[in-house]
Design a protein around this nucleic acid. Structure first.
Lengths: 142, 142
DNA sequence: TTGTATCTACGACGACTTTCGTATATGTTT
DNA sequence: AAACATATACGAAAGTCGTCGTAGATACAA
């Protein structure tokens, strides 16, 4: 019954998690190479980070072979959700609405993406109303 | 032509900015009182923070009277936009879409808010298409 | 004038994060 | 075996952030 007490990853740890999420279980070498495509990071720096993340429970590792293989111990969406909560709280005073509006306003959004969002909105509304039909109702009954 | 080089506020600085945004120009005492409604913070801590923020250019102050009055030097939406960019980058690999979907999925959203978002989506689409009519088009023509 | 309350300025400490140098183990090649 | 490449472990430096103690200034009350 205890919720998983996921520790909040730091920015650098997030960078690493992105690599692991995207590419699956990886060696230190591979992870470091990926990071270096964006910015310069020393090998031992990446190693140390992964070791710390292991302590925190953010990653798991297999040391069957000489070279250890790390993989994410936290799921992408779960982690992002956690961070999102914190962020909405500290930057938007808790109003997720405000944040969504800002995001939609500031970032270029393709027509396809707009459609995706609309579809999600429909889903939410249907679930809220407990409808099993997909027919949209326009007004509340008088 | 130079974009305003707003330094990224830390979490504590954000807390203070929220107070200033919400209540307008404030003394250290008032600001500290506000903060203490949420958590315990020492007076000199708040003072120090405000002084640092003054150096960074995040706030301005008037020291006409003995007691200084601080006010936000950065606008709310601008700052939030800046932070949002950084956050989307580090937590969602740059995909604002993914983040919006998460936010809508995870947070309870009232019917009214859903309508607000729909309205915003319509606006965006109209602007993109350069339409002056507000008539919504339902389908793409076959 | 003397005491009291309230303010600003400033320095410093502890926690956390990121970074890297160095030591050491292990495997590989000649 | 000797030299070399590559891996992990560990300690520590450097920077940032939040916190607060203390000193000194200023106004006001008794």
């Amino acid at each position: 019954m205890s919720k998983t007490p996921i520790p909040k990853p730091t920015e650098s740890e997030l960078e690493i998690l992105q690599v692991l999420w995207q590419h699956g279980p990886s060696t230190v070498r591979f992870t470091n190479d990926q990071l270096n495509q964006r910015r310069e990071v020393g090998y031992t720096t990446t190693l140390k980070l992964l070791q710390l993340m292991l302590d925190k429970g953010l990653v798991l590792r297999e040391d069957d072979s000489k070279t250890h293989v790390y993989r994410a111990a936290v799921r992408e969406e779960e982690t992002q959700g956690l961070l999102l909560d914190r962020f909405v709280d500290s930057a938007f005073g808790g109003s997720a609405m405000k944040m969504v509006m800002q995001a939609l306003g500031n970032h270029p959004t393709s027509a396809d993406e707009l459609a995706q969002i609309r579809s999600l909105l429909n889903q939410i509304e249907e679930q809220r109303n407990g409808n099993s039909t997909s027919k949209p109702q326009n007004d509340e009954p008088a």
